[in-house]
Write a protein that binds this DNA or RNA. Structure first.
Lengths: 339, 339
DNA sequence: CTGAGGTGATAAACCGGTATAGCTCCTGCA
DNA sequence: TGCAGGAGCTATACCGGTTTATCACCTCAG
């Protein structure tokens, strides 16, 4: 017998299908003795539930979805997603929930995927990343009544559950550190301005400037690419009063910035300190190794999974979980300013 | 009506459920007029099939799986997987097939996942990556009768379908190029020896050495990590007769190697030429930018998807597809040897 | 005029589970 | 003694599709 069904088990145990179902799902309706016998037979026949049959009967598919709307090119470099995925899976696997992953080009396509998933009952819920200001996905998901958890932002007036880290505090810890080293000209090479976290980081820099007595603290937005990271760095370093420290919103841009500094004869950390807002193997491969903000992305994913499962189970329960604060890992790219 | 079923359509069209099913799946049994009417009603009610119901009836789930057995740490840096994923999805989405992704720690866990997927009918087939010599997954999959396609290797005596590139030719093109530049001491920092492609690359170097008159052409295996890449480079550059060119099996190791060269005062490409077997944004961020072998990984994934769907439809049909050869992208890290 | 064969449809079984109504005992309490 | 109530189990409907057996009807050849 290749693939036993509960009917086979019922036959062998001399009970009804219903009793087998009760026993296998740990719900009342059978005696302990019968339950034990059924479980043993199931084990021995190496029975496993047919996912489609269960989904049809129980109207849940034990599967959640993650759509990433980014060009594949930028995806690969970011260890963020790999760690997030691992964390998500770690949180899901304990409940035998599987993960559907889809990479699409833009937000419209992403919303289309949600519609399809909802109408085909392919997932019980979804995880949202890269939240933008006035994100259209939030309304779309609400309309679809698809449970969701937002990663790294708030779910729009508390409507969607979320798991988030405090970008503001994190940015402040970087700027505080640089100011303590003696830097007064600090620049911030930010990412895409429509991302919520970009906004929060820019605001943090702006707010901290007066308190720390910074002479200049510009935030320049980019598209997160190495090319714009390099171009922006070139512009900053060409100024008369160039910054003595630059904070980059991503590790890739920080590495690109380091390249520009070398190319222009600006020594790091002698003439310029560099900090990356994201940590990865990239920052450690460099010479000098880059000071970077380390986040526990794996744990982030694990918590997101837990929250999502909770929201699926109890849709009314809107959870907003703040995760552990990221910490600044100081390496070789930061030092007091030379003059 | 939130989610219409074919019964609703049947009611509205005044026909039976069966007729609707025939019409929607484009199979004979209904007249063209009725078919058109049913399709129109389905469209208007924005009907979509319930995936679980379809899976249960048709015994296929329109979903395939990919398991990656690697630590998440190394995963993120490799653009390879992001591109492969995009390509796979591109090939699958035209047939409305979804992809399940799972990252696990080791091969045993991977095989367990296959067993679970097979017994729970969660996927119609799987894609295999990182093929090792005498790979245990091949026999496991055959035992499970789970359709599969192997990426980047042969499916064990032609048993499993495969999509592969010619690693041997690729390595020869690198070594030929370095020899043409005048290099006679070429070293090869290889990956894990149990990978099939590592073996093929090592063999290619060994076979080419006499023909090209190479004085020395050692292949040193590593675990693919930046640490071992750096350590091996350090060892090579400390030798009396140190190599004038090093070929690295991955971009991460090449970058680590470049760092070691800088740290030891060995100029690149003046004193040492460096080639990476894998291309990515990493190699382009470096100074000097690294000469690297570029593969069309997206297309690779797309073809793998096509082959897998073919194998699922016709299990007896074992396809072995050779993809386009990778090309060497020459950048700043290679030059004729100095002396 | 008859019968073979094809067309267009229906009804019902089926896929493998879950959920529920109901039945049979058994126990405990008035 | 009678009966309420619960434990333990069965039978059956149901989820939303697919597939098969069957049938009515029409056409056309013999």
């Amino acid at each position: 017998m290749a693939r036993p069904t509960i009917a086979d088990i019922a036959d062998k145990a001399g009970v009804s299908k219903g009793a087998v179902s009760f026993a296998l799902n740990g719900r009342p309706g059978v005696s302990d003795a019968t339950r034990a016998r059924i479980l043993q037979i199931a084990e021995q026949m190496s029975w496993r539930p047919h996912s489609a049959a269960r989904a049809l009967g129980a109207s849940r598919v034990d599967s959640v979805g993650l759509v990433i709307a980014r060009p594949a090119r930028t995806l690969g470099v970011e260890p963020f997603f790999a760690h997030l995925l691992s964390g998500l899976q770690s949180g899901l696997s304990t409940h035998s929930i599987s993960l559907q992953l889809l990479i699409v080009e833009n937000t419209e396509a992403e919303i289309e995927v949600y519609k399809r998933w909802a109408s085909e009952h392919r997932v019980d819920g979804v995880i949202l990343v890269d939240l933008t200001v006035r994100d259209p996905r939030i309304d779309a998901l609400r309309a679809l009544e698809l449970p969701a958890v937002v990663i790294g932002g708030r779910g729009g007036k508390g409507a969607l559950a979320s798991v988030w880290a405090d970008d503001r505090d994190a940015m402040l810890s970087i700027v505080d550190y640089l100011a303590a080293l003696g830097h007064r000209r600090i620049a911030h090479v930010a990412g895409t301005p429509n991302f919520q976290h970009t906004q929060r980081r820019i605001r943090a820099v702006r707010d901290a400037a007066p308190r720390l007595g910074l002479i200049d603290a510009p935030s320049l937005t980019t598209d997160f690419s190495d090319a714009e990271g390099a171009a922006t760095t070139r512009k900053l370093l060409s100024q008369a009063d160039r910054p003595t420290a630059i904070v980059y919103d991503s590790d890739v841009m920080a590495v690109a910035g380091l390249g520009v500094a070398m190319e222009m004869g600006v020594s790091v950390p002698g003439d310029l300190s560099i900090v990356a807002f994201d940590d990865s193997i990239l920052t450690q491969l460099m010479h000098p190794a880059l000071t970077a903000l380390s986040r526990d992305t794996f744990e982030f994913g694990r918590q997101a999974a837990e929250v999502l499962l909770e929201v699926i189970a109890h849709p009314a329960n809107v959870i907003n979980l703040r995760t552990a604060d990221p910490v600044l890992t100081v390496r070789e790219s930061t030092a007091p300013p030379s003059s």
